[in-house]
Amino acid sequence: MSADSRKPTGWSREQMAARAARDIPEGSYVNLGIGIPELVARFVPEGREFIYHTENGLLGMGPPPAAGEEEPELINAGKKPVTIVPGASFFHHADSFAMIRGGHIDVCVLGAMQVSAEGDLANWSTGRPGAIPAVGGAMDLVAGVETIFVITQHTTKTGEPKLVERCSFPLTGKGVVSRIFTDLAVVDVTPAGFRLSELAPGVTEAEVREKSGAPLQPIR
């Protein structure tokens, strides 16, 4: 069988974001991390309304502006131009992080370098000599938001597993991740470790296990 005749397997970046969006309840206050998590805003399921928080001081963030309509002082946490929706509000950083640490944000979707079987997250530094450590708001988000989703490729560009027994990179938070959306599967973090929840089209349990660095409980 030639490569061309094979069906594509796994989820694209957009499909991972759309899959994560399906698990966010109606009316949630949501903080989206930089990268693939930003795409979640494009896939809000029909009939649901989410309110987006960006930690630099805006609640009610809308989609990116059309080219030429950018406002220089209206940006998101990734420092990219955004818009506001009717009902939006601006506030300073202490209020913004009170929303986060005070438990007022319902869901946060973050990227990851590694996630452990106990739900530990590493996403701010490799800890290597010469690396510039940069944490931003990630540690505040994982400490204060009840539901932390991670969207990430299942492995690194060089094929190393990102779902691991124990993180080798410095931690962002301990035991904070509840669900992981990868290009291959949806994986839950349970008291008994990782559990497969759903496979992407064309992906087998064996493949997910082979590309994971820790055991996975089978799909229930």
């Binding site: 800890g127 708001g137 505040d140 204060g144």
Partner: peptide
Amino acid sequence: PQGTLAERIRAGGAGIPAFFTPTAVGTPL
């Protein structure tokens, strides 16, 4: 951490010499 930075500055302005936060617990910071 960004929220700790904001709160440390707020505390400085409000005359609160220290506070307890869950942010960064269990991490190198």
